[in-house]
Design a protein around this nucleic acid. Structure first.
Lengths: 203, 203
DNA sequence: ACCTGAACACCGTTCAAGT
DNA sequence: ACCTGAACACCGTTCAAGT
């Protein structure tokens, strides 16, 4: 049987790692995480095969947060506003978490739990896009996967300023607004390259 | 006097580091770079105070590439097309270089040489934006700094797919096109947050 | 069953010894 | 004046020894 202190330590480690990764990015040391959790650093590797897997677990949690929000928005009154809200939540999560973008680029296909969350994220994005398109709120050459990939864009733009968005923590809203204006219907230019396929995304 | 082998080694190191950073990101080991250059790893630290400074030197070179391209485009016939071309070149540089985005986020203010290049980049972006606005090619609430920050956006979107854009190496063009459509004049929404100041960018 | 810290192979960086 | 590799303090990861 799994012991009581084991489940407690696992939770302490998840909490400590979540906070440290968010504050300092994915390069924080395991020792630092273990110390913050109040356990020996050997304990980290009893609960997680590798540092990458620990990061994946947390990254997956964040993705599920976004999936849950997206599912709520799937039945909202205004499909266009719902899609914007979905992108807002997704971008805000990244703006608050230094490790999110790094994890998105570094983990991509590796861990199974991440793959599953990404699949669900793509599903809910497809739903939101379909509804928004039906309402005429967005151009019709944009796909759900496009939306998922664009989630990183606005928060990344801000990183060039320095820190975790140290000063100007809400600047991402400006670039999200610009990007969303590019998704609107109207006199758009044809896109030069076809949308990525689901297979490319899932890996 | 600086010896002949010293200037030769410095060039070999810059070339090796440029290639390795582009291919494998900024986490490649100094040993690997030194080996590729054909020198002992102690030599790296004779030419560059730190790994970060070596990265900064290369990053700065890339920025100057873009500045030079921007200066050419400052006198182009079609100011709107010139701005798009500037963003295309900037995004392509990043799509080809795994370390560029990482360096942009990690170095930001630290190194003096980077600061100078960023300043010149902001200058040329201001010029291009002013001309494009004069020609009515873009909305009038977009600044030169906005353009600089948005350069990272399109290439970052693609990173969620995995690798250095392993498969689908031209997908960034799709997202750059969308983003550029968001910069066009017309029925845009007001931006929720003011543009960043030059001081914030320069650090 | 689980925790722990010493031990290992790496990393970036320093520096005494060479030419 | 510069090059070099051994030496140092770290890192992620493993594992024998404890409870």
């Amino acid at each position: 049987m799994t012991r009581a202190d084991a489940v407690r330590n696992r939770r302490l480690l998840m909490d400590a790692a979540t906070a440290e990764f968010a504050e300092n990015g994915m390069d924080v040391s395991i020792t630092r995480i273990a110390t913050r959790a109040g356990v020996g650093k050997g304990t980290v590797f009893r609960h997680f095969d590798t540092k990458e897997q620990l990061l994946a677990e947390i990254f997956s949690d964040r993705l599920e947060e976004l999936v849950a929000a997206g599912e709520c928005l799937s039945t909202a009154d205004d499909p266009g506003a719902a899609l914007l809200e979905f992108m807002t939540i997704g971008t805000e999560i990244q703006a608050r978490d230094r490790s999110f973008c790094q994890a998105a680029a570094a983990l991509s296909r590796s861990e199974a739990t991440v793959r599953a969350s990404r699949e669900r994220l793509a599903d809910v994005a497809d739903t939101l896009v379909a509804r928004a398109r039906g309402a005429g709120a967005i151009r019709d050459d944009v796909t759900g996967l496009d939306i998922v990939l664009l989630l990183s864009a606005a928060s990344q733009a801000v990183l060039s300023l320095g820190g975790p968005g140290g000063e100007n923590p809400s600047l991402w809203q400006r670039y999200l607004a610009m990007i969303f204006d590019g998704l609107r219907p109207g006199p758009t230019h044809p896109l030069p390259v076809p949308a990525p396929t689901r297979a490319q995304f899932t890996g």
